Amino acid sequence: MTDTPRIRRVGLQGLLVQFGDAMSEPANRAAIAFRAAVDAQNWPQVRETSTSLVSTFLSVDLAATPPEQITDALTELLHTQDWYSAPLPAGRTLWEIPTLYGTDAAPQLEEAATAAGVDPDTAIAELSQARVRVLTIGFAPGQPYTGELPPHWDIPRQQALTKSVPSGALVVAIRQLIVFTNASPTGWRHVGQTAFRNFRPDSATPIALTPGDEMCFPSVSEAEYTRITAQDTSGDGGAQRVVLK
């Protein structure tokens, strides 16, 4: 990170503040914390902010606003603290999402466990007890990338695509977990199944999660999962929520 953070222009659409060249916990922490700090400035030139795994993006009309004006303000804000060890914003949510591991509903658990060097029971125990951060949201509307898992879960994607996994599928690769928002082909291994729907287009809050939220995926039985899918209409999939201070 010797040459980061760095500020880059994105055409005339805005500015990108990069905190790393590859995913790491400190760089992701910095991106999330810095975005919150930018939002708190209420700069009139900034139309919107967002984060990727290691960057903060500011949507700014650079045809109307001199880039140097925003760059200077960003540089000053960057110098106010060490963003790589900054506290994450208050008011985030911890989501505990009931998950059915293995069975025909999530048929690649054993394959993923083998790739991680553990047996299936250990895999379920580790994945169901892990507490991971929403690193970013992307690829499909509302699709969260979460992590990071312990190093032995740095398993590669598959060589071939799985034709389709269903909405709510919990998949794993490269120390991350993803909950799919819609049926989709994937190269990630399908290890669990949830009834959680992060993208809710008819809701006042179409995307329930935000980067910086935390998630865990406790294991439930097939009977409990069936009960949840039959009764839940909110999209929460039986999830419990805790506001983090």
Rank of each mutant, 00 (worst) to 15 (best):
T2Q: 08
S219T: 11
L94F: 11
T226M: 02
D213I: 14
L15E: 04
A140G: 01
L177E: 03
L94W: 12
Q158K: 12
P44F: 12
V179M: 04
F34A: 12
S59F: 01
A169V: 01
F57A: 15
I155D: 01
A31Q: 06
P206A: 05
T93L: 05
P26M: 10
T210P: 00
S52F: 00
G187S: 14
E25C: 06
P141D: 05
P185L: 10
M215F: 04
I155H: 05
T210D: 02
L77N: 13
R241K: 15
E224H: 12
G235Q: 12
T4D: 09
G237V: 09
S59D: 10
M1A: 11
P211M: 02
R92I: 05
P144R: 04
W188D: 00
A64I: 05
L170M: 14
Y225C: 07
A173D: 02
T80K: 13
L170H: 10
D119A: 07
A123D: 05
Y101N: 09
P144E: 05
G14W: 01
A37F: 10
R200V: 03
D121I: 00
T226K: 09
G187V: 06
D61Y: 03
G142S: 06
Q69E: 15
L244Q: 12
W43M: 15
P185Q: 00
Q18L: 13
F34P: 08
T136Q: 01
K163W: 01
S59K: 06
H190K: 02
G168L: 05
D3S: 13
R8F: 06
S203E: 13
A106F: 04
G138W: 02
A123E: 02
Q81V: 09
A113L: 07
A195S: 13
R35Q: 15
S52K: 01
A112D: 03
L170T: 11
Q158S: 14
P150V: 02
P66I: 07
E25D: 15
V10T: 08
S221R: 07
V220C: 15
R35H: 04
L77G: 12
D119K: 12
P211Y: 04
G11V: 06
H79S: 14
A106R: 00
D202S: 12
H79G: 10
A239W: 05
T205K: 13
P67D: 11
R200P: 03
I97C: 01
P144Q: 06
